[in-house]
Design a protein around this nucleic acid. Structure first.
Lengths: 207, 207
DNA sequence: GTCTATAAATCGATAGAC
DNA sequence: GTCTATCGATTTATAGAC
């Protein structure tokens, strides 16, 4: 049994080494740069050896995607400590955009690559705490629900739909910036500020 | 001269045939499915022949991207006929989202593929009318400028920045839908409606 | 377990016959 | 102008020696 445990530990260790190398490759050259050969070169093993620990290149990419999303979740989670739901939403937005801009390749891997990766992050796997995507969404839903419960919302809409709307809009700021590079001349941080301020107070002057 | 003209016409004709086939391939299998060999098979020519009319695969992809954006521009342009700038903005949003949802592969090619394609659409090439990207953006900027000139804006921000903010937000609705498939459970059209209504009137009840 | 070697399938792009 | 043939490089994944 002890031997089995040791093998198990070594196996986990090797997988970690592979994933570390894979992550470095993606961060440097993007998802297309991730090949089994490059990973093998980086960890100084033969390409075939990796297949003893991962079923395929796709499996590695999937784990990277999962990790990346956990990093995103960890980056925005501290906002949950803010008591006031409005301030919490604003901070979530700040943190989300900052993560996307500072981790472009990770964000691209999750949200702008093959849809199958992102999709799986939001699939319900019957876990107690739900998929990581749903955990992140719950932060938004919770804030909107509190606002509604406190009678502070002027708009009559489901917190869930409002949360998805806000996520989509903030995602757009990050995604368009990563997609076009120069198009939105206005910095992402400024666009986020404009977005949230306008969402909060509305575009129009009182008549 | 007459002979030269005929050759020129034939050359244009062949390029069109290639692009038609290439577009069909991308619409079916996405950008990654676009290979010179598949194009050659589709038009029943040898792969090498295509290189007499296009410099590279990238050149073909670039033209597809350009065409796609022109289609997007054509899809939203009719909104420009609406006199009231607020109604015009709303209609632009409706048309934009509809185009993205109905033409997923085209939208992906433009905004979710290699950044170099999208970037070039917004580059200023010194043309009189500006790049197609700037033409599209001008529709938004114009509407915001009118609203501001009419004193209808409660928010003090540059029309240009507001236009980029709105584009980003609407892009996010389309892009997230295309990226995750199932995550935003709320339909894109509903998310757009929520977004624009909230932007217009604000999230909060008057205190 | 790890390696070497390689299968099997791609791909973009080009050279040269016709 | 088109084709055949192919170069040269890539990839994922596997088989079998050690």
């Amino acid at each position: 049994m002890a031997t089995t445990d040791r093998r198990e530990r070594e196996k986990t260790e090797f997988r970690k080494i592979v994933l570390d190398a894979a992550r470095r490759i993606v961060l440097e050259g993007g998802f297309d740069a991730l090949t089994m050969r490059k990973i093998a070169d980086a960890i100084e093993y033969a390409p075939g050896t990796i297949y003893l620990y991962f079923q395929s290149r796709d499996a590695i990419a999937f784990e990277l995607c999962w990790e990346g999303f956990e990093a995103l979740l960890a980056a925005v989670a501290p906002a949950g400590a803010i008591a006031d739901p409005q301030e919490r939403l604003l901070d979530l937005g700040v943190r989300y955009v900052r993560f996307g801009i500072e981790n472009p390749q990770t964000y691209r891997l999750i949200f702008m690559g093959d849809p199958k990766y992102a999709t799986s992050l939001f699939e319900d796997r019957g876990k107690e705490e739900g998929s990581p995507g749903m955990q992140a969404l719950a932060l938004l839903v919770g804030a909107f629900a509190e606002l509604r419960a406190q009678g502070r919302l002027a708009i009559d809409a489901e917190p869930y739909a409002l949360a998805e709307m806000l996520w989509s809009a903030v995602h757009g700021i990050v995604a368009l910036h990563l997609a076009c590079g120069q198009f939105p001349e206005t910095p992402p941080e400024r666009l986020r500020e404009l977005l949230t301020q306008t969402l909060l107070h509305g575009l129009f002057a009182a008549p």
